[in-house]
Design a protein around this nucleic acid. Sequence first.
DNA 1: CATATGTCCTGAGAGC
DNA 2: TGCTCTCAGGACATAT
Length: 284
Amino acid sequence: MPELPEVETMRRGVARVTGAIIQDALAFDFGYKPIRITPSIGRLRQRVRGRKIVDVDRIGKRVLLRLDNQAALVFEPRMTGIVLIADPPNQIHLRFQLKLEKPKGNIFFWDRRGLGSVRLLTASQQQQELGPAKLGPDALLITAEQMQERLGASRRAIKAALLDQRVLAGVGNLYASELLHLARVHPARRCDRLTRRQWSLIHQAMNAILEEAIRYEGSTLSDGAYRNALNQDGGYQNCHRVYDREGEACLTCQTGKIQRIVQSQRSTFFCPHCQTKRPARAVG
DNA sequence: CATATGTCCTGAGAGC
DNA sequence: TGCTCTCAGGACATAT
């Protein structure tokens, strides 16, 4: 499930084609339900042919190809989508392809489950679709103070709140568990019960985990869906402290057994020993 | 308004 | 072995 580290890894790989010209755009379905492509592939094709890719960006969990007319192609991987410049893992789940020239090459969007999308957005559409009404600050750019401002009065559980892309963009289910473990905060703790110190710890842990995961090029889970832009595995799955480790010993305290709970229909993993449910004690 | 739940989609894995 | 069933969770739609 591509979250910020996986999408950032794809972005870095795809950035190699910066400067290339788009020769053509193709959509595929191979008998599956087609993914969402907007506008229609015919219109999109007309509008991107001959355009130069001037930059490759990331906003939250999306990859943006910025074109020389201020438009951007926005790839949204959701559960199993990936953006590659090397040949994808197979052909049947190939959903979209850009043929490039000067120099020759390709960008592929491959998506096993087909929940992802490709959208061509004008500058004003980008403001609408990627602006503050839809997406909060990027998880690597938001400050601890901003997080507390945005969530400090919320009654939601911190784990669920971290997944809300309108609050901050980039954290998903896997890294939410990982970062709360590093911050030693219980995932069910209500936001409005967190102290300023805990917000600071969460913020610090979030940056540390996301940056570490980027260094390892993201997490390739057992389904093998996530690959980097060159169709290679990530390495961070071997570093998970809690995710998908139910019943195993906590690597940090060697005492607790990792527990799995369900929050908003999603699995959360945590160490009951490191991440106590009790509120932080008042100091002094 | 804030928060919670249902839905989409395919393939892996469990159980029989 | 092959069938059926459940589950995985990103973002959005709909419900409370």
